[in-house]
Amino acid sequence: MISDPSTKTILVVDDDQDFREQLKLPLTAAGFNVVEAPGQAEAEQILQTLRPDLAILDLMMENMDAGFVLGYHIKKKDPTIPVIMITAVTSETGLEFESGRTGPSWIKADAILAKPIRFEQLRREIARLLKD
C-alpha cells in the first residue's frame, strides 16, 4: 500500500464530467491529491507546470486519438510517470484488451482498465504502480 497518499498527485483526464467525478471522488476520499482536466489541451497545459505521480486518461476523448497522444506525450516527457488508460473497450475501439494488461506496445500505458471502473481494481493498479 502507499505510505501516504496525500503526497501523491494524480492527473485525471476525461471529457465526460461524470466519469471525471467518478474517479475524483473516491481518489480524493482515499486521500490522493487529484488534478482534473476535461481534455488533451487542458492536460498538456497542466503538465507544463505539474509533474503528476500518476495519470489516468480516457482513451477516447473529443478526438479519437487524444488519449493515445496524451499518453505518448507524458511518457516522452517523463517515462517514469505511470499512465493508466481507461476505455469503453470493444464497443468503441474495436480493440480487445485484457483488463489490467498493457495492451499493444504502441499504446503507452502501464495499465488499461475497462469502463465501468471498479474503484477497488483501480486502487490496486495505482498501489502497484506507485509502489515506492
Partner: peptide, 17 residues
C-alpha cells in the same frame, strides 16, 4: 446509463466510505 452505472458502483462498493 453509463454515468449512472459508474456512480452506483461507487455506492455499492462503498468507495467513498
Amino acid at each position: 446509463l453509463g454515468a449512472i452505472e459508474g456512480y452506483l458502483y461507487l455506492m455499492r462498493d462503498q468507495s467513498l466510505g
